[in-house]
Simulated scan of single mutants.
Amino acid sequence: MASQVVPPARRLKELFTDYIVILGYLAVLALISAALYRLVLGWVPEFSRTHTQLIATLTSVVPIVLIFSALDYHRPCGTIGKRRVGLMVAYRTREPWRALVRNAVKFTPWQLAHIGIIDGVYTEFDQPVSHIFLWSGTALLFILLGMGLLRADGRHLGDMLAGTQVVPVGSTITP
């Protein structure tokens, strides 16, 4: 079947659904963390900036990248949001690393924002590093969103690097 362009409204529905899924994951993570701190330690320990960066990365960003990569790779090749609106990720060559690259790039703005906000909390946003990470994450977010919504083929940077494209279920990637 020939490829089809996905209307921006459909992509936004997909993104909104996946955003809700991520918020649900983060809510469960917060509840589990609070329960563990309360029941096991009886208090919330103080963490260094480095520890906080590692906790944020290893409990939120890395698992979400891995989960979304697995969903995008395994048939029917799409996250919950994509499946809800009848979309899927098509591959030039279907290989797991492509889904991982696609999602690592897609979630890089979130990680950059984490770095900036956490650094800012520890330095009261007095250091330029926090602002640089925060604003570069925000800029990259808008670049990726703009590419995904405004390009004729709907590809963002992650798709271009991975050789993937979001298409309606049953379609193929554009040449």
Rank of each mutant, 00 (worst) to 15 (best):
I143T: 10
T123F: 07
W110S: 03
H156F: 13
H131I: 13
M160W: 12
A139M: 06
I118W: 00
L112C: 04
I115F: 10
A162R: 00
G120E: 04
I118R: 02
D119F: 03
Q127K: 10
W135S: 09
R151W: 11
L100V: 13
G146Y: 03
H114S: 14
T123N: 15
Q111W: 09
W135C: 04
T138F: 08
H156T: 02
M147K: 01
L149P: 01
N103A: 12
T123S: 15
R155Y: 04
S136E: 10
F142M: 07
G154N: 15
V121I: 13
R155E: 01
T108W: 01
Q127C: 03
G120L: 07
R155I: 07
Q111R: 07
W135L: 13
R155K: 13
G137D: 02
W110N: 07
S130Q: 03
R151M: 13
A104D: 05
L161K: 08
R151I: 03
A104I: 08
S130E: 00
L141R: 05
G148M: 15
F107N: 00
L150C: 09
L140T: 09
G137P: 05
I115A: 06
F133R: 04
D153V: 11
S130L: 04
A99I: 10
M147T: 09
G116T: 14
T138V: 12
G137C: 02
R102H: 14
A104F: 14
L149T: 09
I143V: 15
I117P: 01
G137N: 04
D119G: 06
L149R: 05
D126H: 10
I118G: 00
R155W: 01
F107M: 02
V101S: 08
I118E: 00
D119P: 06
Q111F: 06
I115M: 13
P128A: 10
G158H: 10
L144S: 05
G137S: 08
G158W: 01
Y122C: 08
T123V: 05
M147S: 05
W135D: 05
R151H: 11
H156I: 06
L100A: 13
L100F: 14
G137H: 05
D119M: 09
I117V: 15
G116L: 10
T138W: 01
R155A: 03
F142R: 02
H156V: 06
D153Q: 14
G146M: 09
L157N: 06
K106A: 15
V101L: 15
P109W: 04
I115W: 00
L141G: 15
T138A: 14
A139F: 14
A99K: 10
F133E: 00
Q111E: 14
D159C: 10
L134Q: 00
L141V: 04
F142L: 12
R151P: 03
D126P: 02
M160Q: 13
I115T: 15
G148A: 15
I143E: 01
D119Q: 11
G120V: 07
P109C: 11
W110K: 11
L161T: 05
L134T: 04
G148E: 05
D126C: 01
M160V: 14
H156Y: 07
A113C: 12
